[in-house]
Every structure is written in C-alpha cells, then in structure tokens.
C-alpha cells in the first residue's frame, strides 16, 4: 500500500509538472496572454501595393501595437489589396482621417502597418475603411528610381 501511494503521488506530481510546463509555454513563451484573435473591431484599408505584408503582422500607432493584420484580399475591380486590420477593443478612438502606411521594421525586418492619427473629431468604428493609405516601399523600385535620377542628372 505504501509503495502504491508513493507511486500515485509521484504520478500526480508528474502530471502537475507537465501541465505547469505547458502553462508556462502558453503564457510566458507564446502570445496567449496578449489579446486573442477574434475580439476587437475590424478596419479596412486599401493599398496599391502591400509589399510583403503578411497576415498577423502588427498594426501600430506611435510604435505601440494596437492590433494585427487579420486578412489580405485582392479587389479585382480596382486592382488594389484590401487589408483587414483587427484592432483591440481598448483602442476605440482612432480618428476617421487616420493615415495607414506600410513600413518595414529595421532594414530587412518584417513589414507592419503604422497608423498616423488625423485630427477628425469622429472615430472609426467596426467595418469602416481607412481612406488615406500609403503603399509599401519596394526596394527594387526605389533603386530603379534612384538610378534613373542619377542618369538624368549626369546627362544634363
């Protein structure tokens, strides 16, 4: 009886340790403690070119993450990318004339959506569209433009 009891205690401790480890992985290592997907409200933004923006990329304002990119679709009518932004419910005072830009974190980092607030007294609500957008900078295009300008200058 004594050995059975010891074994039961050890198995119990083993299972507790296993679940504590899983809990640690969930809360401390991964982003489960951050706002989960699905809550918050959605904003739409149309871009001429989203570069290499990915689903789940951060959406930030003033460098603070407000939400994530939820979906990226293509509009066949206007040939634009339609990006759905999922903003955390706490940040519900984003002006209607906010600018959405696609920037790159660091020189070679991943791309994210940065919001620059406008001055409108009205706020964006679920399903609204951000009117002012700026496309991602594509490195090749910039280099091409730079070379073109150089060539023009030298020919003058």
């Amino acid at each position: 009886m004594g050995t059975t009891r010891t074994m039961e205690i050890l198995v119990g401790a083993f299972m507790v340790a296993g679940f504590v480890a899983l809990f640690f992985l969930a809360m401390r290592v991964s982003n489960l403690s951050a706002a989960g997907a699905g809550d918050g409200y959605a904003l739409l933004a149309r871009f001429d070119n989203i570069g290499s923006l990915k689903v789940r990329a951060p959406v930030s304002m003033a460098g603070v993450r407000l939400g994530r990119v939820e979906a990226i679709d293509f509009d066949q009518e206007t040939y634009q990318a339609v990006v759905t932004l999922r903003i955390a419910p706490a940040y519900d005072q984003i002006p209607t004339d906010t600018f959405a830009n696609i920037y790159t974190a660091g020189l070679l980092g991943e791309q994210y959506v940065a919001l620059d607030p406008g001055g409108s007294p009205d706020y964006l609500a679920n399903g609204d569209q951000i009117q002012h957008t700026q496309s991602a900078l594509v490195l090749e295009r910039m280099i091409g433009q730079f070379l073109f300008n150089q060539a023009q200058e030298s020919s003058q």
Binding site: F14, M15, A17, G18, F19, A21, L22, F24, L25, V29
Partner: peptide
C-alpha cells in the same frame, strides 16, 4: 499521455 507532458517539460526547461 506521458509524451506530451514530457515534451512540454523539455521545452520549458530548455527555454
């Protein structure tokens, strides 16, 4: 049942 618990311990201690 034991394998995922052991793997979780391995990962957590590794981190």
């Amino acid at each position: 049942l034991a394998m995922p618990l052991l793997a979780a311990m391995f990962s957590a201690l590794g981190v």
